[in-house]
């Protein structure tokens, strides 16, 4: 390791990053601070960054909610299976497509891009799920977003940049394609696999729309649907189809206080926030070339 001088460039760069970070930290701090303050403290100043009348009442209340824990479990199951199946699919599909000699490669890529732009819409997808007998089941939350064209293209592009020589050497030694893929290509693709793990995990964790369409029973709700119900459910109920507010009816529906909404937001987001720092170790510069040369 060489000693590098801490230059003016570094100072300016770091200072700028600190400033941007503070800006990005703000909403999170605000949400956290509101979640541990009293409701009247929130109304008094919704933008507060210092807590007032500190209380953990909102957390106590939300953790007592039975749906929170069942939806936690559902989301964990859905996320883990989605990531595991998805990453496997990305690897085996992207690898052949990264080979420029592959016959039919262009047409397959075009077909994949096509699926990114065209979709049948809500109703046919609902029919499909029903015909497959998947309505109101957790697989209905996993399958529709198993393979995203976007992620596939990212992985394919990364694999295209892996030097061909390594694979050739193994092939000369008589290695089969599966061996080459899982023993040589996959280890070299760890940065992109880590990235896609993060992307798919977050996509599954944050998705509520599939649940809105395919799930009926509350015991199969995912976490983000639970959050959405806490934040928006009562508000939507208090507005009728015509779009007017009927004040008597609105008063009849209990709207969740922001303190409780934000406490829920903190609770449902924390686990997924931890994924990134964990994956960061795979983002080390030069992994690939190091191993090529080694």
């Amino acid at each position: 390791m060489k000693f590098r001088k801490f230059t003016l460039f570094d100072t300016a760069n770091n200072a700028l990053i600190v400033m941007i970070s503070l800006l990005m930290l703000y909403p999170f701090v605000n949400v956290f601070v509101v979640s541990i303050s009293s409701y009247s403290a929130y109304i008094e100043n919704p933008l507060r960054i210092f807590p007032k009348d500190i209380t953990f009442g909102a957390y106590a209340q939300i953790t007592r909610h039975p749906v929170l824990w069942s939806s936690y479990l559902n989301t964990i199951i859905v996320t883990i299976s989605g990531v595991a199946l998805g990453i496997f699919l990305y690897i085996v599909t992207a690898y052949p497509l990264s080979k420029s000699f592959l016959k039919g490669r262009r047409i397959i890529m075009l077909a994949i891009v096509f699926t990114m732009l065209f979709n049948g819409g809500l109703i046919p997808n609902y029919y499909l799920m029903r015909e497959l007998g998947l309505l109101n089941s957790l697989p209905a939350l996993v399958l529709p977003m198993l393979l995203s064209g976007f992620n596939l293209i990212l992985m394919k592009t990364f694999m295209e940049n892996i030097p061909e020589e390594l694979e050739e050497a193994a092939r000369i030694d008589g290695a089969s394609d599966p061996y080459i893929l899982f023993r040589i290509v996959v280890p070299l693709s760890l940065p992109i696999i880590a990235t896609l793990c993060l992307f798919t995990a977050v996509a599954y964790w944050n998705n509520f729309f599939n649940a809105i369409v395919y799930i009926r029973d509350v015991d199969k709700w995912p976490l983000m649907l639970f959050l959405r119900e806490i934040i928006e459910g009562a508000k939507l109920i208090s507005i009728s189809g015509g779009g007017v507010e009927n004040a008597a009816e609105a008063g009849n529906v209990q709207i969740t206080a922001e303190t409780l909404q934000y406490a829920t937001l903190m609770i449902v987001t924390l686990p997924i926030l931890c994924v990134y720092p964990f994956l960061q170790r795979f983002f080390v510069k030069g992994i690939m070339l190091g191993s090529v040369k080694g």
Binding site: I212, V213, E229, G233, L236
Partner: peptide, 12 residues
């Protein structure tokens, strides 16, 4: 159905 998805589930 979830209150935030009532319209969708009703339609479907």
């Amino acid at each position: 159905p979830p209150a935030t998805g009532y319209k969708e589930q009703l339609q479907l």
